[in-house]
């Protein structure tokens, strides 16, 4: 099994619902976002398109951990806190092992998919949101998208997939040629982020 995502950029409307759903499901601390919707546009401002009127265009790029087949982060982690689960292809992070050296953050070419809890995590609400069994966030550890391990392991699908109102996020087994995701990426034009880095991401963007 090799789980991955296909994100249909034709369908994606940049609504941030998947980002918010991820934040709630994983009870992410303040200012931590494992899944972010980047504006691929004309300036450094969100939702600002490229080009001049009326020939503007914009793309949205939802970016979470790419669950690389050849993860740059895993190679550099001195304590094995970040590792690839061979059975699923999911790149995991063990908070208890993480020593907070942030080597993985430096090595990962996909800036921002990993985040670091500089301080004791703080939350907007005073109770735990989302899954009851997602691991607790810890100070001085690195964290990132778990591919909703807690859901997937129980037979469910990642929260961001269910949340997407555009039906733009397709998740499934890349090893199964009959899965929806495999069919999509073999029939549609698609791209991967920074293929030259040799990380072999498990996230495909359908363009």
């Amino acid at each position: 099994m090799h789980y991955g995502f296909a994100i249909d950029q034709e369908r994606c409307i940049g609504c941030h619902t998947c980002a918010v759903a991820c934040k709630i499901e994983n009870n992410l601390p303040n200012e931590i976002w494992w899944n972010r919707i980047l504006t691929d546009g004309g300036s450094n401002e969100m939702d600002i398109p490229r080009g001049s009127f009326p020939d503007n265009s914009i793309d949205y790029l939802p970016v979470n951990c790419q669950h690389c087949e050849n993860p740059a982060c895993v190679r550099v982690c001195p304590v094995g806190a970040t590792y690839k689960d061979e059975a699923t292809g999911i790149v995991r992070q063990d908070y208890d092992k993480c020593i907070g050296c942030r080597m993985c953050m430096a090595a990962c070419p996909y800036t921002g998919v990993r985040s670091f809890n500089w301080q004791e995590p703080e939350y907007m609400l005073d109770y735990t949101l989302g899954a009851k069994d997602s691991p607790e966030h810890q100070r001085h550890t690195v964290e990132k998208c778990t591919m909703c391990w807690h859901r997937v392991a129980g037979g469910g699908e990642p929260e961001c997939v269910k949340a997407c109102p555009g039906r733009a996020r397709i998740w499934g087994d890349l090893d199964d040629p009959n899965s929806e995701i495999s069919k999509l990426i073999s029939s549609r034009e698609c791209k991967q982020l920074l293929p030259e880095e040799g990380t072999k991401p498990s996230v495909y963007y359908l363009v």
């Binding site: 090799h2 087949e69 090893d175 495999s182 073999s186 034009e189 698609c190 293929p195 072999k200 498990s202």
Partner: peptide
């Protein structure tokens, strides 16, 4: 962009 990337 890679057209029709094969299943890995």
């Amino acid at each position: 962009a890679a057209a029709g990337a094969a299943v890995i």
